[in-house]
Design a binder for these strands. Structure first.
Lengths: 336, 336
DNA sequence: TTGTACGCGTTATCAG
DNA sequence: CTGATAACGCGTACAA
């Protein structure tokens, strides 16, 4: 069933059928009703490919995520779910592209074939080949996360610098004097991954401002590494009384390490940081932390992208979110 | 840049350009080279929408996942990542549709607009409105998971019945006489969710066959619930020496409950089951369990779908996987 | 208020 | 071996 057949059955031209459906041109009420009845009887739906071709837009956005090899974290999963939901509210479908490096097949297919009206990039790096590619090709895009010098593109990000500093101040206010930062993996820091480097900057600046004794350590994104790092850290520096972490995947290991070392939380040891709400709630005791507002970030990213698609010439917009630290039960004054 | 312009610059017809690219008709070497050079210079890429229209296929598959409200488990995330990767190997893109209930916007958009050549359904239910809808509309589909009476469609599934039985036999062989099944949430069982009901059936049959004292309990998909369920279970029936679980999200809670109750694993208590490898490895001690072969299931699902797309009339195929139980460190003979 | 023509890429067909 | 043409299916600028 196609629009021509509907037109034939309704005794009108194809354009009249199209206008009756879109309302972009006046169609007499009688004609419109007749057309709609025929459409209803025939169960006609416009073909998306033909529509995309004629309109010059696909009503689809691309969502670029790290390839399957690198394990997706629950936060990234949250972005995917949130973006798909938000896109649905804008009547947009989502094409998933697992692309990391330079010339990625699925990424190229999507861009070159103009399969999408815009792209959302996640896990953006300092020099991001995908962002450069999108700029060159003129496809509107928004990134979740930003890098310095990326002012040209729109982005949504978390103020890791301010949040890490906020955590430091919280611990300092409670009376902690010797604290540590449990950061993301070393490679992430080295490759200029924003959250890792900005958390480090915020932590360093705030501990200096409060004259705290500060240690920082990188940690792979898994529980075993988290356990090892914390055990090593407290063996080397037993005087540490609190940890700020931005590595949520390490949390179960942090919990285990502290238990094994007899550092009861929060009586003898405080833990805080920036993590997904799920992880904060699963921690024992529940973690006092800035919850990553995954859904809000996804919403804003889609919103920004929808804007850039409809007005590509408008100036880029930047959204830097700074959620509050949710007081739960993992921080307290240090034991004397 | 379009194919007509390429044809003009190369001094050939549009069809020759197309044939030179696809190889579906012989084109002289000289002409072909000239065309390819022009294409290269102009940076021409066929428009995917126009190609989809002409070919009558989109080179895209739909992946239907539970909506964002219901938390996605790491296994589901694994399916998404695995399917996207496998689809990429078939030169297929993936359109994500978070759809659960009856009339879901994004699902309808995808099906009615013929935006996809086929669909992969996950989290399939006993009477699945989406499966019925796909059957009616004639869109090829494959489901991950199956229900009785769904013989008409192709599917890939895990033999939860055999796997649960295998876990029971493993515990029975070690000498356990009183064991329990920690199942998925009660609503899942009630709504005819296959893995939950088949695990229950396999567990029940095997414990009966081995004359074991068996208890079964449902458990919401989270750690806190897991802890509560296990604590309640062992308070009511302290003689239980082993647990079979198909609820991976509950595992961190299971670990906590056993520790609190002083049931050292595996010396005093055994734990086994069917869970994603990641969860098995994060458990302390590492969990002896049948690892859900997420990647293989994703591969097979895409493969089956590719077959159904190319030969829709061919009979449906069913793949029932039964991975081995990986011996790690969480089971041992019961203490005397 | 309605109809016509165009654009997009692939492919079958007919004609060289 | 190559070219020309039409059809696929839609939205929409433009003409009537």
């Amino acid at each position: 069933m196609n629009i021509g057949e509907i037109a034939r059955r309704a005794g009108v031209s194809r354009s009249t059928v199209s206008y009756a459906l879109s309302g972009k041109r006046a169609v007499s009420e009688v004609t419109r009703r007749r057309i709609l009845r025929v459409i209803d009887e025939a169960g006609y739906r416009p073909n998306a490919s033909a529509r995309a071709l004629a309109e010059g837009r696909t009503r689809t956005i691309g969502l670029v995520i790290p390839p399957a090899g690198r394990r997706l974290t629950p936060i990234q999963l949250g972005f995917v779910a949130g973006i798909v939901a938000a896109a649905g509210r804008h009547e947009l479908d989502v094409l998933l592209s697992p692309s990391g490096g330079e010339h990625d097949r699925s990424f190229e297919r999507i861009i070159e074939g103009r399969r999408v009206d815009g792209v959302i990039l996640t896990e953006i790096r300092l020099r991001d080949a995908r962002a450069a590619r999108l700029r060159d090709s003129g496809v509107p895009f928004v990134s979740i996360g930003h890098t310095v010098g990326a002012e040209a593109g729109s982005w949504v990000d978390l103020d890791y610098e301010g949040l890490a500093a906020g955590c430091v101040h919280h611990l300092a206010d409670l009376g902690h004097r010797v604290i540590a930062l449990l950061n993301r993996p070393r490679e992430f820091l080295d490759s200029g991954y924003g959250p890792a480097s900005r958390a480090l900057a915020g932590f360093t600046a705030a501990t200096a401002a409060r004259s705290l004794d500060a240690t920082t350590v990188c940690c792979p994104d898994d529980a075993t590494a988290g356990q090892n790092r914390v055990e090593d850290l407290l063996a080397a520096r037993p005087e540490i009384t609190g940890i700020v972490t931005v590595n949520e995947a390490a949390l179960p290991g942090v919990e285990r390490a502290l238990r094994r070392l007899g550092r009861a939380v929060p009586a003898l040891f405080s833990v805080t940081g920036v993590v997904g709400r799920h992880w904060a709630e699963e921690f024992h005791p529940p973690l006092t932390a800035a919850d990553v507002p995954v859904e809000e970030m996804a919403d804003r990213a889609v919103e920004l992208l929808a804007e850039r698609i409809s007005a590509p010439a408008a100036p880029a917009r930047h959204v830097l979110l700074r959620p509050p630290i949710s007081l739960r039960a993992s921080t307290a004054p240090p034991s004397p």
